[in-house]
Amino acid sequence: MIEDILTVMWKERKTILRGRAISSKFLQILLFPIILNTVFPITWGPDWVTDFPPLLSAIIIPALLLAVMVPDSFAGERERNTLDTLLASRLPDRAIFFGKLVTPIIVGWGTAVSLSLVSLIVVNTAYGEGELLLFTPPIAIGILVLSFLSSTTMAGAGILTSLRSETVQEAMQKLLTLFTVPAVLVQVLPLLFREQFAAFMRTADGLQLLFIAVAVLVLIDIGIFSLAFTRFQRSKMYLH
């Protein structure tokens, strides 16, 4: 099974990095995160290594990157007429599913962590003054955990919307809708609940907020992965 998953990952890596169109798109998507992790640390100052902005960056970067990348996973194969042949091969369902899921997680996570390191170099270059500035342990752990969870959430949601979409564009629209729903739901929550929640957020310390963010993302991940895996059945992958 592991060998089959690695095979799918090998192909995913080739198509992401080798395809000229995709790689140029990949670089365009990376432009904003690169600016985020080079310009912001300079404007924020040496507090960048102890404050919350690197955590936001760790969540935003994989989300941005994978929102464009993952809808391509199944819908892209369907659009380019390569899915049928892949499904007719001996690859087990799980290998196809996890191969397509793990690759973007690694890309999203790896990019977020790499760019965090880039931001660290930028801060040290600008404000180091001979002293090595490092992320505090909670921030460093926060970057690793939140960027991982952000990657898994976006990869899972992307796969889920891509499974039954005929085109990449349709998958992207579904993904956008999926992430708009919670924002709408918040608006329909009772006012009292929203006020209590806002008050809690104002008083909670950084560590508490980190734990809440982690717990919420883990719960979302479990839900999304279960749903996506249940929906991934060879016979239901044919839309015509």
Binding site: T7, K11, K14, G19, N81, T82, D84, T85, A88, R90
Partner: peptide
């Protein structure tokens, strides 16, 4: 599927990969 080869209505070639990589991918699959 383990004992069958298929060339379906659409050829299923990954156009953004080289011919050699297309073959390599399926050789790994098999």
């Amino acid at each position: 599927r383990a004992r069958t080869g298929a060339l379906l209505e659409c050829n299923g070639i990954y156009e953004q990969m080289s011919a050699e990589d297309n073959m390599e991918f399926y050789a790994r699959i098999w």
